[in-house]
């Protein structure tokens, strides 16, 4: 029932979907759209796995994603309790490639008091530091604010609030999906990815 779903022809998708009421196939409807004929090559290229847009992997080192120290490793000592989240990307440990090819790889880092970290979240934290997807699960804005309780983080677009001490659970909407947590560990003070994201990234795509 979908005509022109998506802006690019997906070469891996069945091109024979039936279209609505007019009896045309998807195949015939796309005919004549000259501009589209080059699109499949672009998509094929984008679909090639690359170190830059691969999701964080165990062993990746976290590096600052912006500011004067962009690209430099983040250490536990760079983070203080009660201050706004710092943003980071994972970087491949062997090649140093920063995984900044996808916005979904952006990670927020905050440091919490030990009492504010739940038993479920503690194994994924490192010396009080927790890491979450930085992309709000409401409309995809970056989650940039620290709540005055020094424990929750807030999206600065519509105020969705997530408990950084407890698995990124929602404490205030409108978001309907918690933030994905990125398990980390500390190795000589440096922050290292311990396991892939736990949870879904970004907003639901209705």
């Amino acid at each position: 029932m979908h005509a022109g779903t998506g802006n690019r022809i997906d070469p891996d998708r069945d091109a024979d979907d039936e279209l609505g009421t007019c009896g045309c196939t998807r195949r015939s409807l796309l005919a004549g759209a000259l501009a589209l004929t080059l699109a499949p090559l672009q998509v094929a290229a984008q679909n090639e796995p690359s170190a830059r847009n691969a999701r964080p992997r165990p062993g990746d080192r976290l590096v600052f994603s912006d500011g004067e120290r962009a690209g430099q490793p983040v250490s536990v000592a760079d983070l203080a309790i009660g201050v706004a989240p710092r943003f980071a990307y994972p970087a491949d440990a062997a090649t140093q490639t920063v995984r900044d090819g996808s916005r979904l790889n952006q990670v927020l880092l905050v440091r919490l008091e030990d009492k504010d970290i739940s038993d479920q979240t503690r194994p994924h934290s490192a010396e009080g530091v927790v890491a979450y997807s930085a992309i709000c699960t409401h409309y995809g804005c970056p989650v940039t604010l620290m709540h005055e309780n020094k424990r929750a983080v807030i999206c600065n677009c519509h105020g969705s609030t997530f408990d950084a001490g407890n698995n990124g659970e929602i404490t205030v909407g409108p978001a309907t999906r918690r933030l994905a947590i990125l398990p980390i560990k500390s190795v000589d003070g440096a922050l290292i990815v311990a396991a892939p994201f736990i949870g879904r990234l970004g907003p639901p795509q209705e």
Partner: peptide
């Protein structure tokens, strides 16, 4: 009220906007 056609474009990966 019969549907004639529908267009829908997926958001790019990581897309965010103040309003949708």
């Amino acid at each position: 009220g019969e549907l004639i056609w529908k267009y829908k474009r997926e958001f790019p990966e990581g897309f965010g906007a103040l309003h949708v």
